[in-house]
Nucleic acid binder design. Structure first.
Lengths: 334, 334
DNA sequence: CTGAAAGCGCTTACAG
DNA sequence: CTGAAAGCGCTTACAG
């Protein structure tokens, strides 16, 4: 079966391809009767617009790229899901790209996306240096940066107030009476992680309580890295009574390790996670965590991107969300 | 900055566009010296092939579609991740489509994918009736079906031997001495679920032990549906001593509910999950489960699809994987 | 209210 | 070993 083109439709309906195109795209008035004929022809022939042709001619592909570290990580998986939902509602398909935070992979994906004429790109937690983004800038591809700060003012940005979040969690633990609080951060070059740690430090300063650098280590946001990080912290002579872990997945790994060591959570050690993934509630013990309003953030990201696609030279926007602490079973008074 | 085209490269290198194209695609021999000039021109101009144009002309978009129920579900998230990895390695980007098992959504996505001239489509656990796939067939778009049986012989298929898996798990529990085994299945119209239940029934038959239909209910593979399903099972006067749950996510929900009810897993009730997602090992208690070799399956799916793209009329293939039981803490002798 | 025609940037059959 | 040129299927400025 040969492809049905707009010419076939035009012939079948007895009109020009111009008219067919305008009916499809609703780009100019077409008489009701003519429109009906065209739609009928489309239906009988089973016509589908060829996006490659449209993309070549009109320069829009109705496709956006989503660059994330790892779709198999629940936090990013939820993000991906929501972005795809809102994107599809707005008329876009999304190409997913997993970078594992490797600059080379990110660069390769950006290359491919530029070649594919995507209408825009969303970067979540992109760990790479700004140079990697140059192809997007030079080819004038709109993009939105989420979950990561960039010093250069190159794009719209959506983020969480990570410093405040770090402060809130630490303040909560100090309020519970904990005086030795450990910390499993994210990768050290990752800005949300740095900011949460800044909040952690500020809370200690405001309380006039010192923190022990030996109780702070970094993980990779994965379950297993949380497990190992706990080993590192627990080898010290001085043990913390509470732990602030920068992702729920790592918190699950850490709690699991603690349980393996015969410890009780929260009696022996309180643990706070981050993200509020669905599992945090279902895990035993359920995990006290800091909620990121992912759905709302995903919606905002897609909105900013579609706006940017329409108005390339509009003023840049930076939208900062405030999350909230969700108290569950994994924490208790000291 | 205007788009750099193949003509600009040709002019810069002092050759024809034909030669540039052949250098890029390695489709015919080009003298080393000429090739060098072309590559140099590409580099200095920052040329990137326009995939829309190539797609229109050559009919290949280097893009495949992935249709899954829900990328936020860890099992599918791991699938997605692996398929994207293998796909990208093979030179394809993947467009992700979340259907929530709704026929309308699946149809809308298939429409969009056909319009986008994707080179192929992968359907994981597609719950829809075969009619939804008609646009793929009529437009001659290669596709592979995974994790779902289709009566019609329309595509290459990759699946797990679900009947055997159901038998193996049930046989294991019977061997442990359990005589009242409950079951939380997947949706009733979902073939892997039906087959696992068939295996469950066969094991009971071979042992000459009856099972109680009141102990069998269905969930939607989500954590919360596993939680609710346990309520339903536990309201019976006759309680099972073991539970075979058709996904780890549902198993986590069920275990969580059991713990909430003051039960001990596995002392009061043994629980077996399915899939062996990363979390099954980390959960407390760690979950006995049936391992699906996702990575290998994902690799095979991508291989079948890329082969099919190259040889549209080759013989259809059906590859069935055998999984294996992984014994952990959530099960014990009766 | 509608149409004829140019052209987007490639690939490839044909030619030498 | 390389090139001139047609054409993929659309959209849209121009015209009436």
């Amino acid at each position: 079966m040969a492809r049905v083109t707009i010419r076939d439709v035009a012939k079948e309906a007895g009109v020009s391809t111009t008219t067919v195109s305008h009916v499809i795209n609703e780009t100019r008035f077409v008489e009701e009767k003519t429109r009906a004929k065209v739609n009928e022809a489309i239906a009988t022939l089973g016509y589908r617009v060829n996006i490659a042709a449209r993309s070549l001619r009109a320069g829009r592909s109705q496709t956006i790229g989503l660059i994330i570290p790892d779709a198999a990580n629940l936090f990013f998986a939820e993000y991906l899901r929501k972005i795809e939902d809102f994107g599809f509602k707005a008329g876009y398909n999304v190409i997913v790209c997993n970078t594992d935070n490797e600059t080379d992979k990110e660069a390769a994906y950006i290359d491919a996306l530029v070649s594919k004429q995507v209408d825009g790109v969303i970067l979540i937690s992109s760990g790479s240096d700004p140079e990697t983004l140059n192809p997007l800038i030079s080819h004038d591809v709109p993009f939105v940066i989420a979950d990561r700060e960039f010093s250069a003012d190159v794009a719209d940005v959506v983020s969480l107030d990570n410093e405040q979040a770090g402060f809130d969690v630490t303040n909560y633990l100090l309020n519970l009476g904990h005086r030795k609080i450990g910390c499993i951060t994210g990768p050290n070059n990752f800005s949300p992680s740095i900011q949460r740690l800044n909040g952690f430090i500020r809370a200690h300063k405001e309380w006039g309580i010192p923190y022990d650098p030996e109780h702070i280590t970094s993980g990779k946001f994965t379950l297993s890295s949380g497990f190992s990080a706990f080993d590192w912290i627990w080898q010290n002579n001085s043990k913390p009574s509470a732990l602030f872990v920068f992702s729920d997945m790592m918190a699950i790994g850490a709690i699991n390790n603690a349980i393996t060591k015969g410890l009780d959570v929260p009696k022996d050690i309180s643990v706070v996670g981050f993200d509020n993934i669905e599992l945090a509630e279902a895990f035993a013990p359920s995990i006290t965590t800091f909620n990121q309003p992912i759905e709302k953030m995903a919606e905002t990201i897609v909105e900013l991107l579609t706006d940017r696609i329409k108005h390339k030279s509009a003023n840049r926007r930076r939208i900062v969300f405030r999350g909230s602490l969700i108290i569950r079973e994994s924490t208790t008074k000291y």
